[in-house]
Nucleic acid binder design. Structure first.
Lengths: 215, 215, 215, 215
DNA sequence: CATGAATGAGGGTTCATTCAT
DNA sequence: TATGAATGAACCCTCATTCAT
């Protein structure tokens, strides 16, 4: 494969990475297309060979980066053996590990800012990211209930109650990248553990809970 | 006071209200100064008689709107009589009532998007809003521990674990205003109750907790 | 009336005049909006206070300049007293006087180049300019036939045969403004007379013609 | 000659044909070089192997297409036997047949739009196309006068008066290709006949004309 | 010769900001 | 003080042209 073609094949991903970084750091509006091109090591015009507009670039950034991560998490959950409490704690940790450090958190933040200006993008995000994630968490809760490990509970509100703090943490983490003043004063990983401690007490089936406490 | 002067005295607040609404609906970058002036019922030029730039307007919006709400919440907590669990649940509800429906949620969202571009603003926000809020929650936890109602716990991470879901909910609520696709499928007030249920189980002192369960 | 308002009232016409001149000299695509603004004595941004886009500016240029001239010519024809041959000759002269020296010729030329790119504009031009002009010429011919001055004839094709050379002359004249190489080597006014002679009198050999003249 | 070389030899003409078609349909400015290449079945870069710039391509298009057609017409005239009136009518028809349906009309239109932006091209066009055409028409008139078929006349203005409507018709015809709204409502071929009738026969009232005819 | 990825100057358009009235 | 016409820097995007392969 000639060098030129190798470059061409790599371009879209290089541009997406550059765009992701800048959109997440500075916001969509505050990022100039020329900066994206520069960070990707190409000229302004080249960007437009791959993405027809700045908005399409944003769509591609979101489309590409998120669906994949969600899908991977779902796989891991499906294969879990063992207690549901441990599974849930692991999911919390894993989400943090993925989203907190990878791009996902930045994208959540981006969507929260830009959704109003790009309704089509918001619909896509809701359908491809948020809803699958909800199903993922719901599956874990149902598993726990079915196995008698979790007490019966209203599923939808519990799912929301579990996702909310995690989503905030990943957004906060990415905000801190470009704005250290707003960084969490405690290590977010520790907060994740604390969240797990708190909610697992509330989720456990009463019998199990008392047994644990007595131990 | 003649009507003209009353108008003049009210101008800054009218401009701030207009700016708050628009910044929160559309984002800072997507809001034009002319729109702000129009919503406030003045001309484009008049805006600049009161605020020297769009950025200064943003600062004033944040400065004005938040500190007040935080201060009011702190007052209510200081005056509470009764159980700490109930106090905490009430704080969660109250925050939701205030922030979810008033402007505070929109400002959180705004800060999360714009902090990177306005570091000075972020510092101000951290010092005047976030840190006081943390002190407020910490005070409640310390009260509960001191009264034997809550078990001993790592305070900082618990505060973060409590604030995170609430902050997410208010941001989500305000996102939904301009983007219905991203609205929560469950009533956020219900999610607040569910959060309270979950974390209070985890916070209660063991003795108290087991007593509750046995009952 | 304050000076500022007087300026504002005059702006649209100043911009239209500047745009007409430049579009006609250089063509639509080759004219930069900044040039139009400069010729009108304002800055680039000001143009957009009056016309929302370059294309709308072109529409306004055409709408404004032509309909008026056509309407005036129709008036003059309606009021003519005397022989139809002389009326027709006078119309040819007048069209040349108006169109050849005023803006109309430039606009014909502009339409011929740009019609394909702006179909809506072409429809407007056909309905508001071309068709009224056809009616004007047709009216003259019908008048002559009714009065026994002209022989019966196929009207539509005769109208086309009369308009064609005149339209060419005005376009040529305006081309010559920006391109002297293509100027007519004979005075177009003389060509107009010659056209009148030909169509009124024929190309026949002197013998036949002189017999006619003697009559 | 191997196929490859035949292809290579044909390239310039294929490019010129493609360019002619597009320039005439959309105008010079609105045609992208890539479109020309695509229509000619080559890549963008290849175009530049044959023509050093878009402008040079335009020059070649004009140079190539017109001179040839003019030359052919002149030949036919020189060989004509018979009456000058019939010769002239035949020339009108032939011009229409050639120019109206072939490329010449499009090029006239193109020159009229672009002459101002390309003075060198205009000079070339004047010298190679317009002036020879004038000589052609003048020769026909002189022939008629010499044979006593046409009355003496001012030659230059008569030539202009004859060419003007024909040039307009071919331009209009080509405008109609890309803009049906501006198409002539009468068949141009019919208009050509009418032009011939008029200029050969006059617009006079039947009385005058019949006297002539009787002679 | 042929390709097509890459370039970057240039132009249309927006909008925060100014200032004459 | 209030207005709103005017400004012009900045940005998105296009496309003629180049050049490594």
């Amino acid at each position: 494969m000639p060098a030129r073609q190798r470059r061409k094949a790599a371009r879209p991903q290089e541009l997406l990475d550059a765009a992701l970084g800048l959109f997440v750091e500075k916001g969509f509006a505050a990022t100039r297309t020329e900066e994206v091109a520069e960070r990707a090591g190409v000229s302004k015009g080249t960007l437009y060979l791959y993405y027809p507009s700045k908005e399409d670039l944003l769509k591609a950034v979101i489309a590409q980066n998120i669906s994949r991560e969600i899908a991977e998490s779902m796989d891991r959950v499906a294969q879990h053996q063992g207690g549901s409490a441990e599974l849930l704690r692991q999911m919390l940790r894993e989400w943090w590990a993925n989203a907190g450090e990878a791009s996902c958190g930045g994208i959540c933040r981006l969507m929260m800012s830009e959704a109003g200006n790009f309704p089509a993008l918001a619909s896509y995000y809701e359908a491809e990211v948020i809803e699958p994630a909800r199903r993922l968490w719901r599956a874990v809760l149902e598993r726990g209930i079915a196995r008698g490990e979790f007490r019966p509970m209203p599923l939808d509100s519990t799912v929301a109650a579990l996702m909310a703090p995690m989503l905030f943490l990943v957004m906060q983490q990415h905000t801190a990248t470009s704005c250290p003043q707003l960084a969490s004063p405690v290590d977010p990983a520790e907060v994740v553990e604390r969240i797990a401690d708190l909610v697992l007490d509330g989720l456990r089936a009463p019998a199990a809970a008392s047994r644990v406490r007595r131990a």
